[in-house]
């Protein structure tokens, strides 16, 4: 029994690796058969990525994009959490802002981006604000639902022991919201990656989005895929290196 369990755990990364290898193999063979400039092989893309990395262009543009992602992510998560918790706690604030949040949630990303560029100019502030504003409403809604689901008996316990406000927030409220915050962070990061590139394409002169636009005009699919590949690697790195360890640490009491 334990031997079977152990072998299952050992084989888990192997299965993941096999899936990735199979995908790359299909890609490589397919590209060889198609023999077209529009579907470069995996090795060609990898070579382009390495060359672009050595030239410094890829790290430079990737760093700029990452900076924008980090700024927009931080702003939207902090504001969205604060707003969501407040709306979940206070019915009046919820009534006041509910419509605005719904409208913002359904407004196309492109409209927000274009309007902010028109009103505030083609600058960094407008770019980051546009991305953050696109993410804000969904974070708010997730955290509002989480706050509504808070355990009232623990609330009452905190009141009966007359716990100070910040202590209640830190030790009673936030630990209950951890799963909601992680859900908002994961879906938020995914959304922000996508929107940041559009924002760069429309109004910035650097970053991965801008590079992809250039290579689109040159019809250089190899370089587009090289940037995409670098992007995928970074996303995976953040998931494995930051999100998963952080999640394990915050839910250690469950084990």
């Amino acid at each position: 029994m334990s031997a079977r369990l152990a072998s299952r755990f050992d084989s888990e990364p192997l299965i993941r690796l096999a899936a990735a290898a199979a995908f790359l193999l299909v890609w490589q063979i397919g590209a060889g058969l198609a023999h077209s400039r529009l579907l470069p092989s995996f090795t060609a893309v990898l070579r382009a990525m390495v060359l672009e990395t050595l030239s410094g262009a890829l790290p430079w543009n990737l760093a700029i994009t990452l900076g924008r992602v980090a700024a927009a992510f931080t702003i939207s998560l902090l504001l969205g959490c604060a707003l969501g918790i407040a709306m979940g706690r206070w019915r009046r604030l919820d009534l006041l802002l509910d419509n605005a949040v719904t409208v913002l949630l359904n407004l196309p990303a492109l409209v927000i981006i274009v309007l902010l560029y028109v009103w505030f100019g083609l600058n960094e502030t407008a770019a980051i604000a546009a991305v953050a504003l696109n993410k804000l409403p969904s974070t708010t809604i997730v955290l509002r639902e989480g706050t509504r689901a808070l355990d009232p008996t623990l609330d009452e316990m905190a009141v009966s022991f007359r716990m100070p406000r910040w202590r209640v927030l830190r030790h009673v409220v936030l630990p209950q919201l951890v799963p909601y915050i992680f859900a908002a962070a994961r879906s938020g990061l995914a959304l922000i990656w996508k929107i940041v590139l559009v924002v760069e394409l429309l109004g910035r002169s650097n970053g991965v989005g801008f590079q992809i636009q250039i290579y689109f005009q040159l019809f250089d699919v190899t370089m587009i895929l090289a940037y995409t590949l670098a992007f995928i690697l970074v996303v995976q790195l953040i998931e494995w290196g930051a999100l998963q360890p952080l999640e394990l640490w915050t839910t250690r009491w469950r084990r």
Binding site: T153, E156, M163, P175
Partner: peptide, 23 residues
């Protein structure tokens, strides 16, 4: 006033010791 509720109502994400100190 120290209250002992019918269900223990300890904070599950804090240790017994932390639960005492937080009160």
């Amino acid at each position: 006033i120290g209250t002992v509720f019918q269900e223990p109502r300890l904070l599950p994400w804090r240790t017994v010791w932390q639960n005492l100190l937080l009160a």
